[in-house]
Nucleic acid binder design. Structure first.
Length: 155
DNA sequence: ACTTTGATTGTTTTG
DNA sequence: CAAAACAATCAAAGT
């Protein structure tokens, strides 16, 4: 087991973070300060990038795509997405792991493509940053426009 | 906006 | 310093 090496050398396996399976770190008691998180996120100010690949759909979402079609056929009267979501959620939980299996597999494939697209996207970003000399560390890569925050929803 | 779950990321805490 | 754990945000579709 390579996991044994992790704790002694520090060879961290990205993405293979296993929950305290053989060793508990200790219960967290102090309530996290969410305010900072909220604030930090705002500071990030994600710039609108149409080329930026969106997140890959999870197994549930892959199932949803199919479910929506089916559900619409069976319930042409129901047009609310909320109704479909609830129905899908219930159906999803009703499905066995084996039935969800194929969906998870598809989700994994989508994720793999996403990573690939991100790689390409990152490269482009790097290239752009490259031509910008030494002034890129700041994610405020705001060239020209002086507007701030892209708060579209939240009414 | 509502609605579903999951997956990823971000922040905090502890060892 | 690193890993673990928790918290939050985001992914789509139709009215």
């Amino acid at each position: 087991m390579f996991l044994v090496f992790c704790r002694m050398t520090g060879a961290r396996v990205k993405g293979a973070m296993k929950p305290a399976e053989d060793r508990k770190v200790g219960k967290r008691k102090a309530p996290l300060d969410r305010s900072s998180i909220r604030k930090a996120k705002k500071e990030k100010k994600a710039k609108k990038d149409p080329s930026k690949p969106k997140r890959p759909p999870s197994a549930f979402f892959v199932f949803l795509e199919e479910f929506r079609t089916t559900f619409k056929k069976e319930n042409p009267n129901v047009k609310a997405v909320s109704a479909v979501g609830k129905a899908a959620g219930e159906m999803w939980k009703s499905m066995s792991e084996e039935e969800k299996g194929p969906f998870e597999v598809k989700a994994q494939k989508r994720k793999a493509e996403y990573e690939k697209q991100m790689k390409d996207y990152n490269e482009k970003q790097e290239i752009s940053a490259n031509g910008r000399d030494a002034e890129e560390v700041n994610d405020e890569g705001n060239e020209g426009s002086g507007e701030e925050e892209d708060d579209e929803d939240e009414d």
